[in-house]
Design a protein around this nucleic acid. Structure first.
Lengths: 161, 161
DNA sequence: GTCGATGCAAACGTTTTGCACACTG
DNA sequence: CAGTGTGCAAAACGTTTGCATCGAC
């Protein structure tokens, strides 16, 4: 899981390669590559958090390209979602989060502090099988979000709840 | 699962008793019982579907009491939620659904047709235990919604997907 | 009469859309 | 140059809130 290397998890070359690959997919789909789209893709790849809202992306992008409009962010994220490059996870009121699909997992969202915990999807395979068997229901393989309460907020709550 | 009785699942007396009990809880909490609230509670008890949106409730209530405002529906549902009488389940865009808490279960929501399937929460106990053990995360005991694809829509999709 | 509930309208935050223009390929 | 992406503004969406008034207890 964690090699002995003391280097950053991703080198710049790594990020640049992924960026190029994604832009290539946009082109392959008949789309165009613009300054705005390049910045949005870069924001998705280099952001500190792997789970970002449209607004998060906008802030990062607009820091360098103030003229990239929020609607462009939404349209581009939508295009990337259709290409299968990003997943959109709806979190009810308060907005959705986006993340790259190369990062397959489910999400535990704390209703109290908003923290997103990633969970390996193997934890859900039993459940998925049973939902299929008993209800014929196909659980999404990715981008499932369960809203509950994280450890920290539970501990805080137990002192006063 | 299905007894031989050919009667309705709930008699009128049954519904009336539940209605009275809920209104009593409102009063016990220092709240008032108004025409609007009575109608809202009745709508929750007698609706054909156990999963209703605020708008669904509004339509039923306003059929008989056109002057009951949507904001009143929201405020009353909110009050009932705080009393623990109803659960609110956020379904991302498209709004939330409400249902009585005496009806403990989780939800499978079809992303394609919107159908809500109820699932016994026992199916989730294994998962809940593991999320607790491995992540310290508390899964909600009720009103969890998993968005996926129901049997019908899967079958339709398989012909063309 | 006190305090809570209501109607109304307006604001909210996120997301979508119609349009004319700008740019990519 | 064809066709796609963009900024902008406005609307859509479900939901919340401030306020004056009404009504329950």
């Amino acid at each position: 899981m964690s090699p002995a290397h003391q280097r950053e998890p991703h080198t710049h070359d790594d990020t640049a390669a992924k960026e190029a690959a994604i832009l290539e997919r946009l082109r392959a789909d008949g789309g165009r590559v613009t300054t705005g789209r390049r910045a949005i893709v870069r924001a998705l790849l280099t952001g500190p958090d792997h789970h970002v809202t449209a607004d998060d992306v906008a802030r990062v992008v607009q820091a360098e390209h103030p003229d990239v409009h929020l609607s462009t962010i939404y349209r581009t994220l939508d295009a990337l979602e259709h290409l299968g490059v990003v997943d959109r996870v709806n979190l009810g009121p308060g907005g959705a989060i986006y993340h790259l699909t190369d990062h397959a997992h489910h999400h535990l969202v704390c209703e109290s502090c908003g923290t997103v915990i990633e969970v390996r999807d193997e934890l859900f395979t039993d459940l998925a099988r049973r939902l299929d068997e008993q209800h014929g229901f196909a659980m999404p393989a990715r981008h499932l979000a369960i809203v509950g309460r994280c450890k920290t907020c539970r501990d805080e709550a137990s002192s006063r709840d």
